[in-house]
Write a protein that binds this DNA or RNA. Structure first.
Lengths: 254, 254
DNA sequence: AGCCGTCGTTGATCTCAATCAACGGCCGCA
DNA sequence: TGCGGCCGTTGATTGAGATCAACGACGGCT
């Protein structure tokens, strides 16, 4: 692992689809993704190694085991990240939304696959040039470390879920964490009112995320409905009628 | 998240137990842990914010939910990192050995606990001063990012195990990954000879790591013994008699 | 040396979630 | 408008691993 010199050096500029800093200003992920670590001024350097990419729902854009040539920042839509076994068993390790950064890899290969759940827009960075930008802007590397650390916390939480929670606890935990994802005030006023959530992923996705089968996910939802804790307006639109009682079912970490 | 200025500034020096660079040279983790990112010369700066700590087997030295005041580098022994539920259920998220770095945290609190499996020696860094050292040596931050990225890969692998593998696959996967941990040539000559492993952790630890019960771990080991794939000289000393056949049972990732 | 507590193994039984099966609703398409 | 495939739900049955139980080996202690 050789050091990258600190002095500025010429950066490969890809003229195709390169967003200008101005375009970045319009970006949905401008103030939540990687880009939040830079000023509008410095963002230009990042923009020069970026390309906008559109992926339609269901398409794979990262394949486990292939060479890791790119980093991605999601600017629109939702993505599932997963690993598979040879016989087809699949474990979704995370659902990623706007602002999420994907593509950290060791030994040059992706250790996971990624697919668009909805239609997705991505900001794609070429690995080599981006690493050079990192060398110039340590703030980016720090941001990336924050991202990685946060992902690690989520991953540990998920291991606890997969290793030790019951079906109903898993589904409840998912509902609560999914509601917190879009909640601007995480541990603000304790949730007494109802919460509306949209679930872009399929029941199969949920099952593969929670280490269950679709049938068990469905039965758990039905039980929560029967107990008056949630209701569905549509298969992909759930309302938490009693968020606190759902939270109580997650076997909340001490 | 305010920026840490780049210019060198005075660093708090703790005169108690501070290892000198010379002492670092003797350290078992000198060339594998965080310290590997620095030259002997620069290591002095790191050493000034470090303390040597000894933890006896079974003792907890990081408590989930407490303020994250320290980073740790393991210089001797093995550690279990875990999360617990209020009712006592426990998920071990990793076994950490010499050279492993522990303590990355978000929002200032540890999201996990850590206990010594064997007697353990640690190099402890105070958080504040260490962050200042990071600002001076970006190589450290990069190293940390590498560490975090690698941990993430392991965590995803473990989620696949916990969510989708059978008991025998989990135990086999553990044996193989544990054998690779100390293997200096990971994908070198395919393992045809036998491999001796020492398992410092208890069956309960293994169960809590693999999302099983001690009974199931024990039964899986017994089955592997019955099939002539492994043998035990002692409860904590296993020999892989047919490493390739054990590997075949892990449902190897494609 | 003898005692006690912990740890690991094995057997018997139980249970939660998986599997197998059927069906209704929805959507895209002819 | 009718058809076919996919998705989600619900019911019946099965099964892998948990739970309950017993016991032997070991190690620390007096």
């Amino acid at each position: 692992m050789r050091d990258v010199p600190f002095a500025r050096r010429p950066i490969t500029i890809n003229p195709v689809n390169s967003p200008t800093p101005g375009q970045c200003g319009d970006c949905g992920a401008r103030h939540i993704g990687l880009c939040d670590a830079l000023t509008d001024e410095d963002l230009g350097f990042l923009a020069r190694v970026a390309q906008r990419v559109v992926i339609s729902a269901g398409k794979t854009f990262i394949d486990e085991g292939t060479t890791a040539n790119h980093f991605y920042d999601i600017t629109q839509g939702d993505v599932r990240v997963f690993k598979s076994l040879a016989d087809g068993r699949r474990q979704i390790t995370g659902f990623m939304g706007v602002g999420h950064f994907i593509g950290l890899a060791v030994s040059g290969q992706y250790a996971f696959s990624a697919e668009a759940i909805t239609d997705v827009k991505l900001c794609r960075f070429d690995r080599g040039p981006l690493l050079e930008v990192f060398a110039e802007f340590p703030a980016l590397e720090r941001k990336l470390l924050d991202v990685a650390t946060h992902e690690m916390v989520i991953a540990q939480e998920q291991m606890l879920l997969l290793g030790r929670k019951t079906a109903i606890e898993r589904v409840s935990s998912f509902l609560i964490s999914w509601s917190e994802r879009s909640d601007p005030y995480p541990d603000g006023t304790s949730k007494t009112s109802t919460v509306n959530l949209s679930l872009p992923m399929s029941r199969t996705d949920l099952a593969d995320y929670l280490g269950l089968t679709t049938e068990t996910v469905s039965r758990s939802f039905s039980q929560l409905k029967r107990d008056g804790l949630i209701s569905f307006t549509d298969v992909h639109e759930v309302t938490l009628l009693k968020p606190q009682r759902v939270a109580a079912l997650t076997a909340g970490e001490q």
